[in-house]
Design a protein around this nucleic acid. Structure first.
Lengths: 339, 339
DNA sequence: TTGAAAGCGCTAACAA
DNA sequence: TTGTTAGCGCTTTCAA
């Protein structure tokens, strides 16, 4: 069976307490005792029982990340990069990462409650925020540590990291208008997602600034998947007056839109222009390569994790709320490179 | 503060023991007591302290998945889909999933030891096996539950799920030979990965069966990334006698190879043929779409998780070792569809 | 049907 | 510098 602190106490002839303190390098233990205990512990291959430690310390050194989705859709590189960013940073601190999947349905809150009240994690990272987000309401009200990737409607009195979607989309529109486009379509994310609001707002404000209006027929709601982008682009291209540019609110939908356009014989970048948002690893290598807005998801994962761990340790944050400036990445799909 | 079993005991006037038994629905508690206790528990919003439960029960209902990589590379959809598959299945059982990232360096084993000996998880899922895999050696020797996605050299006396890479690559080669290709190049994974061996073996056996030899100049080692595929394909295309087909051992490298070929003005599917392995979500939508071998990673994640949980519960497995038959997916990049 | 008591492995206040 | 003791919240004998 497993080696416990008790075994070491017996083997060294010291008390359990002394062993505990020696192992934790307290300075009220004699040097010799410390050496002895540590040697014996190493010999016996002692590793502390974490539940016992945690039960005692009332801290878990674990952070929770509940992915708001189920099923194979996690092929979306978004989640992989995010997990990498959060997990790597957690590892640096010696923290663990508890990952669950739970679609945003009526069971969603149960899992947060269970993990919080069961004291399984010291804090949560919240991703893919809705405009009204009960996860955030709940955590705010219980006063439990959390950091958000994204924002919500209403008062933003919690720590978050987000990229400025308004500015990002505005940059895209600016660019397209400068290239001469006037009939610009937009494929948006599901309405309940907060970033849908920001990105659409960016589109509309930038258009307005150039005296352009969004034709309601050119505004279509997608589901963030390639399949969705494909379907919506098909519908747009079938209009009596099709757009000259399609602005998709994420890369995946843009890829779907490109497929749809190509399938109908369009040369993307020449006959029609398509852009994305996220700058996934694929954007650079797709054909044509995708004009998009860069979003450093891995680094954001790093940041939110770092902030959360500091919070759980009672530290205060230098920057509680971070809004990243987006960077436009011009590639071939907008035609600027193509010619 | 948190509600404990003690609070409920006080509130109901029952003993701690009785409360515990009532909550766990033991049948030596009177119906009334049970109802009373459960009502009060619900009112107070009681949730068991999992650390205490686990300390007591010596079981964690948590499984460990340590991703053998670090850094932003988890954009690889492989890991996202795997986590989804494992996580969803774990959720079905009410199990948690503990995810870590740890590159296969000399610190690698420390994290396994810590989690195992700290009794943080009931079992491990091992992925991306090396030909000689110390993770498996260690777990085998400690007799700790684990299930492997992949195989190793030597005796396969542990539970695993894998897809038959030999058959998969053979199917690709068969197909290409039938299309008339004779000069076929291969971009392989890093040598230490076990599936590199199988996939290369599949290529060579299938070639041999047609009396063809692999020109050593056409065999190049990649690193599983797009960037790597790009570089190796460039080298191949610059040969005095370039290949007519490039068989990449995963989709990512195939995408890189496609980019390289296109950049040099080749029409992929006509001037050169490129294939992948995995059938990632992107393969279908790339341009040209990618001929590849399907690997149901999400489902494999489901399977290994299911097997592992059964193992940790002391159940025996109907099928301890599963070798999945691969399915060839013919699309445009091999020229069969293109015409 | 219930409760008292022990103990899971550990940490920490207090005494010696 | 060390050991005694209590206790984290829970489950589980054992006795009543």
């Amino acid at each position: 069976m497993a080696v416990t602190i008790k075994d070491i106490a017996k083997a060294t002839g010291k008390s359990i307490t002394t062993v505990s303190r020696a192992l934790n390098d307290y300075d009220d233990v004699s040097h010799e005792t410390k050496l002895l205990v540590q040697r014996v512990a190493a010999e016996k291959g002692y590793t502390p029982n974490l539940w016992a430690q945690r039960l005692q310390k009332q801290r878990t050194e674990t952070i929770g990340l509940i992915l708001p989705t189920r099923g194979p859709r996690l092929g979306d590189p978004f989640f992989g990069q995010l997990i990498a960013g959060v997990g790597d940073k957690a590892g640096e601190y010696g923290y663990d990462l508890l990952v669950s999947t739970q679609a945003p349905d009526r069971d969603e809150m149960a899992i947060y409650k269970k993990k919080l009240q069961g004291r399984q994690v010291d804090g949560f990272i919240i991703v893919r925020t809705r405009r009204q987000d009960r996860r955030i309401d709940y955590l705010r009200q219980t006063d439990f540590p959390f950091v958000v990737f994204g924002r919500t409607e209403g008062e933003l009195d919690y720590p978050y990291v987000d990229e400025d979607g308004v500015a990002g989309m505005a940059a895209i529109i600016e660019h397209l208008v400068r290239l001469g486009h006037r009939r610009i379509a937009c494929i948006t994310p599901p309405e309940e997602l907060m970033f849908a609001t920001y990105r659409l707002q960016g589109v509309q404000e930038a258009l307005a600034q150039h005296g352009l209006d969004m034709d309601p027929a050119l505004l279509r709601r997608g589901d963030l998947t390639q399949r969705g982008g494909f379907a919506e682009a098909q519908a747009l291209l079938a209009l009596p007056q099709p757009p000259t540019a399609i602005v998709a609110c994420n890369d995946l939908m843009a890829f779907g839109a490109i497929s749809a356009a190509q399938q109908q014989g369009f040369v993307v970048g020449r006959d029609i222009v398509i852009t994305g948002f996220d700058d996934t690893p694929w954007a650079e290598h797709s054909n044509p390569s995708l004009t998009t807005v860069h979003q450093p998801i891995y680094e954001i994962g790093n940041m939110v994790c770092d902030m959360l761990i500091r919070l759980t340790q009672g530290q205060s944050l230098e920057q509680r709320q971070v809004l990243l400036k987006p960077r436009l990445i011009v590639r071939q799909s907008c035609g600027a490179d193509a010619s």
